[in-house]
Design a binder for these strands. Structure first.
Length: 517
RNA sequence: CGGGGCGUGGCUCAGCCUGGUAGAGCAUCUGCUUGGGGAGCAGAGGGUCGGAGGUUCAAAUCCUCUCGCCCCGACCA
């Protein structure tokens, strides 16, 4: 058992922090609310980024980069937007530093118009699109950017809510409302497919209520995931911005029938928060558990030996296994200190051989286990003599002795696939077991403490929603897109009319209530 | 931003109440023994006690201010 990790049962919040520390993912920075993403954590982000980027390209988008600083006046142009973000903007008011006369420094000159550090880029991009778009022939404009943004948060948590975070934000402009809506939903589908197939996180697709909507959007769609403590995590959002920003920034175009109209825009994003979601969905009391698709190291080979002559023989055996697992055409071996890595490009085969002499095998087992490595292979003199190897899979910590000859690239691909599937299945089973139908407000309140998604009728009014939030801290996570959903109470139809148990008013269907991160 | 808790070698903490000039375990380094789930022995290095003021002959310890972290609330990707 891991002694450096608090158990989930004892203290879930502390467990989360312990897993990040043990997994070598991130550190707190000297600046409140910010984090240093360490190489292993960033390696996960790179895999997320690359696989998402490929999906954006496949749906016709291109990348560009817009500036970090936005003139303060820009934010004021869209009323709801400024209302939503004003309180969390970092504002740059001075340039330069000078001595404060006491051995320290103070800001020097005040600048004419304060700059804000982007909390999101709708405004600067709206301004730019106004210059780029003249005619319907310039549309659609399908652009994404990978960037950092800053939101001045009161309470922060590593990955889940930091003052600065990394994300992508897609910004598109279209000729018609229908095209904008189609784009908004297309990207929601991209997120959903990505979350489930790459992150192995089952998500609910749906629309946000007006209260939860993005500031400046006509409609906000989201994917919502359930963490192991039963709380909801908004994992991605896609917004149909209608003409709100095109009117604010005067993004006009000449239509096919010679008229002038404002474009219809969308925006959509996911962030480093996804890493927090992965941690809280899959990890266990032993540390990080990573889906193979985003595991910077997918296999760790740990050699075991006593004497020098054993060492040479075992290392030869281990290296041969490493090459065999990587398959033909693998990249050159990368030697970093006492760790040798072989990667097969375009696959999930990222295999390290742990040659560190200072650590004993059990310590290496813990090392790779806590970093979430999906497969560990142990080879020692006994295995060498018998042509075997010990294979341990992280998802279930199952240990098996197998024939070394069978440890091929094809075997590895299949093993990683099944680990990926097992994680998804486990997470889905967990969500289903903790998704409940409730028809009574008192019942809802009573069961909320235990966590989970609660499918309850809602009359559609902001007043009822606000009351529930006030009284229970639960919010409407989404109005599900699906017709029905698997729950602990069986398959439940979501679109059947009913009665809101809080207000007693008629309801068009059930929505998902939960406490959220 | 409100309430609570905590800041002492890299990490976890003792010492603080009752001031007298800093300790333990783990980690690190060296050597030997080891090695299939967090090793043993021997030796070594490493701390302006979060920071700034103040009280005092003397401050990790008492007082004031400040910064940061964690938890709970309001806000949020």
């Amino acid at each position: 058992m891991a002694t450096n990790i608090t158990t989930r049962a004892k203290d879930y919040a502390q467990w989360y922090l312990d897993v990040i520390a043990a997994g070598d993912l991130a550190d707190h920075s000297p600046v409140r609310g910010c984090m240093v993403i360490k190489p292993h954590g960033f390696g996960i982000w790179e895999l997320i980024r690359d696989q998402l980027d490929a999906r954006f390209k496949a749906t016709g988008h291109v990348n560009a980069y817009f500036p970090l600083f936005i003139p303060m006046s820009f934010l004021a142009k869209e009323a709801k937007h400024v209302e939503g973000f004003a309180m969390e903007c970092a504002v740059v008011t001075h340039s330069g530093l000078e001595s404060d006369g006491a051995g320290g420094l103070k800001p020097r000159g005040e600048i004419e118009e304060p700059l804000i550090v982007r909390p999101t880029s709708e405004t600067i991009i709206g301004h730019t699109y106004a210059q780029w778009v003249q005619s319907w022939r310039d549309l659609p404009l399908l652009i994404n950017q990978w960037a950092n943004v800053v939101r001045w948060e009161m309470r922060t948590r590593l990955f889940l809510r930091t003052m600065e975070f990394l994300w992508q934000e897609g910004h598109t402009a279209h000729e018609t409302p229908a095209e904008a809506e189609e784009e908004t939903l297309r990207m929601l589908d991209v997120y959903s497919e990505f979350a489930e197939n790459v992150l192995a996180i089952p998500v609910l697709k749906g629309e946000k209520s007006a209260a939860e909507r993005f500031a400046g959007a006509d409609r906000t769609y989201c994917i919502e995931a359930m963490m192991q403590d039963g709380k909801a995590l908004q994992a991605g959002t896609s917004h149909n911005l209608g003409q709100n920003f095109s009117k604010a920034f005067d993004i006009k175009f000449q239509t096919r029938d010679q008229k002038t109209e404002h474009v219809f825009t969308t925006s959509w994003g996911v962030s480093t928060r996804l890493i927090g979601g992965v941690i809280m969905t899959h990890s266990d009391d032993e540390g990080l558990v990573l889906p193979p698709a985003i595991a910077p190291v997918s296999v760790a080979i740990v050699p075991i030996y006593r004497k020098d002559e054993e060492r040479e023989a075992v290392l030869g055996y281990a290296r041969q296994l490493q090459q065999q697992l990587a398959g033909e055409g693998a990249g050159a071996k990368l030697v970093r200190g006492e760790i040798e890595t072989v990667v097969q490009p375009g696959t999930g085969r990222r295999i390290v051989l742990d040659l560190r002499d200072g650590l004993r095998p059990p310590e290496k087992f813990f090392h790779w286990e806590q970093r979430g490595v999906p497969v560990r292979i142990e080879v020692g003199p006994r295995d060498l003599a018998n042509g075997k190897a010990v294979v341990v899979t992280r998802v279930d910590r199952a240990k098996n002795i197998v024939d070394a000859a069978g440890l091929t690239a094809a075997w590895l691909d299949a093993t990683l696939r099944s680990a990926q599937q097992a994680l998804f299945d486990r997470a889905l089973a967990m969500r289903t077991a903790r998704t409940f139908v409730v028809n009574d407000y008192a019942d809802f309140k009573a069961r909320l403490e235990g966590g989970g998604f609660f499918l309850m009728h809602w009359d559609g009014t902001a007043a009822t929603e606000a009351r529930i939030k006030e009284e229970t801290k639960a919010t409407i996570r989404c109005i599900p897109a699906a017709e029905s959903l698997a729950t602990a109470d069986g398959m439940v139809a979501l679109r059947e009319a009913g009665t809101d148990p809080v207000s007693g008013a008629p309801s068009a269907g059930r929505v998902v209530f939960a406490r959220a991160y």
